[in-house]
Amino acid sequence: MGVSALGWGLGCDSGTTSGRRVSYVIEATSDVAERGPVETSLGWSVTLDAATMGLSHLLFVEGTPVAQWRELLVPQAHAHPGHYVEGQIFAELLAPTALDLTTSTRLAVVEGTTGEIRSAIVGFYDPRAEVLDPALGDAVVVLSGTAERDGATVAFTAEATAADVLDEAIALPDVSGCPVSGDAEGGLLRLEVSIGLWLDRVPFDQLAGDAPAPFMRGEAPHNAFVRGLRKALAYPIEHLTT
C-alpha cells in the first residue's frame, strides 16, 4: 500500500481505533525564528532575511518514524523501506498556508481524537493550482539571506518547487515520518522547521554570480538544499499540554 494511500483513506472519523474527541492547537515556527542565525555542519553561519514555505497539510499520525536508533527521539521503527505506515490520523490541518518562517505562527485549532501521535506528514503546497503567496510564486520554499564563514560573506537566494520534494511513492510533495516527541491528550502540536538542516550541507562557497547568488538547479548548492528539504528530521514536532 502506498505510504499515503492509507492515510488519505482514514480520517479522524474513520472509526478504526479512534479515542475521545479533543482539540489540538497547531503552531509552526522555525529554528531561525526561535534562535536566530543557524550554524551548518560545513561551518557556515546563516542569517535569513526571508523564509517562506507553502504548507499544504499537516497530518499527525500513529506510525513510528524510520530513524537511526542510537540518536533517536523515538525508540522503534519498522524495518523495511516502504514499511513506514502512518496508521490512524489523530489530527490534521488541511488549510494551505504560506508560512513565514522568520516568526512563529498559530495555524489553527482543529478537532481530532486522542491517541499516541508518533509521527507527522508535512505536505508542501503545490502552487500550480493557484498562487498562495506572491513571495512563493511557483516555489514551495523561498529563502534569502547571507552565509558567513572565515570572513567570507555570501548573499544568496534559494527556491525549491513541488517537484523537488515530490515523494514518488505517493506522487505528492510530502515528507513522511517526521518525528513527534511528547504526549498529551489533545494539547499543542508545535512544528519547528529546521532551516539549519535544510541548509546544513550546502556548499555556499560554490555559489556564483552577482549577489544575491541563486541556488541554480542542477548545481551542488541546490542539490544539497533539496536533500535537506526531504529530511524528516527537518520537521520535528513537539506534542505538549497546553
Binding site: 555542519s41 518514524p65 524510520v66 530513524a67 537511526q68 540518536e71 533517536l72 527521539l73 523515538v74 513506514y84 509521527s119 523537488d164 514518488e168 515520518g177 517526521c178 518525528p179 546544513d200 550541507r201 550546502v202 542542477g218 551542488a220 542539490n223 544539497a224 533539496v226 536533500r227 535537506g228 526531504r230 529530511k231 524528516a232 528530521l233
Partner: peptide
C-alpha cells in the same frame, strides 16, 4: 556526501535519521 548525489540519480532518502554520507547510509 549524499548531498553530492543528484536527486535525479537516487533519492537516498534518510527518513528521520541524521545520515549524511553514503557509508552512513549503507550502515543504516
Amino acid at each position: 556526501d549524499l548531498s553530492s548525489i543528484p536527486t535525479s540519480e537516487g533519492t537516498y532518502g534518510v527518513a528521520a535519521t541524521s545520515v549524511t554520507t553514503l557509508g552512513g547510509f549503507v550502515r543504516a
